[in-house]
Deep mutational scan, measured.
Amino acid sequence: IINNLKLIREKKKISQSELAALLEVSRQTINGIEKNKYNPSLQLALKIAYYLNTPLEDIFQW
């Protein structure tokens, strides 16, 4: 999986903590996703895309 979450999140000036709060997950979860240590569920990936107002395929590429 190619993961552009960190790049997109930083472009939008959103911290890991802010995104985690919006998604109701821990900051460690966001960190793990960004470091490719954790693959989000489809539901979480869709929520990330929604809150970042970015197409899912721009954030994650399988």
Score class of each variant (00 low, 15 high):
residue 1 I to S: 12
residue 1 I to P: 10
residue 1 I to M: 14
residue 2 I to G: 10
residue 2 I to F: 12
residue 3 N to I: 04
residue 4 N to H: 11
residue 4 N to L: 05
residue 4 N to Q: 07
residue 4 N to T: 05
residue 6 K to Y: 06
residue 6 K to S: 08
residue 7 L to P: 07
residue 8 I to L: 07
residue 8 I to T: 06
residue 8 I to F: 09
residue 9 R to G: 01
residue 9 R to S: 02
residue 10 E to C: 09
residue 11 K to S: 15
residue 11 K to C: 09
residue 12 K to M: 10
residue 12 K to A: 14
residue 12 K to V: 08
residue 13 K to N: 14
residue 13 K to E: 09
residue 14 I to E: 01
residue 14 I to F: 09
residue 15 S to Q: 06
residue 15 S to T: 14
residue 15 S to G: 07
residue 15 S to K: 09
residue 16 Q to L: 12
residue 17 S to R: 11
residue 18 E to M: 09
residue 19 L to P: 00
residue 19 L to Q: 00
residue 20 A to H: 04
residue 20 A to I: 03
residue 21 A to I: 11
residue 22 L to Y: 15
residue 22 L to Q: 12
residue 23 L to E: 00
residue 23 L to K: 00
residue 23 L to W: 02
residue 23 L to S: 06
residue 23 L to C: 15
residue 24 E to G: 14
residue 24 E to D: 13
residue 24 E to T: 08
residue 24 E to V: 08
residue 25 V to K: 03
residue 25 V to I: 12
residue 25 V to Y: 02
residue 26 S to M: 04
residue 27 R to P: 15
residue 27 R to C: 10
residue 27 R to K: 13
residue 28 Q to L: 11
residue 28 Q to K: 14
residue 29 T to W: 11
residue 29 T to N: 04
residue 29 T to Q: 09
residue 30 I to P: 01
residue 30 I to V: 12
residue 30 I to N: 00
residue 31 N to P: 02
residue 31 N to I: 15
residue 31 N to R: 13
residue 32 G to L: 15
residue 32 G to E: 15
residue 33 I to N: 00
residue 34 E to S: 02
residue 35 K to F: 06
residue 35 K to T: 15
residue 35 K to C: 12
residue 35 K to L: 14
residue 35 K to N: 15
residue 36 N to W: 07
residue 36 N to S: 10
residue 37 K to M: 15
residue 38 Y to L: 13
residue 40 P to M: 06
residue 40 P to S: 03
residue 42 L to T: 06
residue 42 L to Y: 14
residue 42 L to K: 08
residue 43 Q to R: 13
residue 43 Q to T: 12
residue 43 Q to C: 14
residue 45 A to H: 02
residue 45 A to V: 05
residue 45 A to C: 11
residue 46 L to D: 04
residue 46 L to W: 07
residue 47 K to F: 04
residue 47 K to L: 08
residue 47 K to R: 12
residue 47 K to S: 07
residue 49 A to N: 01
residue 50 Y to N: 07
residue 50 Y to K: 10
residue 51 Y to V: 15
residue 52 L to W: 01
residue 53 N to S: 12
residue 53 N to L: 05
residue 54 T to S: 08
residue 54 T to I: 07
residue 54 T to V: 13
residue 55 P to Y: 04
residue 56 L to V: 14
residue 56 L to M: 11
residue 56 L to F: 09
residue 57 E to I: 08
residue 57 E to H: 11
residue 58 D to S: 09
residue 58 D to K: 09
residue 58 D to F: 09
residue 59 I to W: 02
residue 59 I to S: 00
residue 59 I to T: 01
residue 59 I to E: 00
residue 60 F to E: 00
residue 60 F to L: 03
residue 60 F to P: 01
residue 61 Q to N: 11
residue 61 Q to I: 12
residue 61 Q to M: 09
residue 61 Q to T: 10
residue 62 W to I: 11
residue 62 W to H: 08
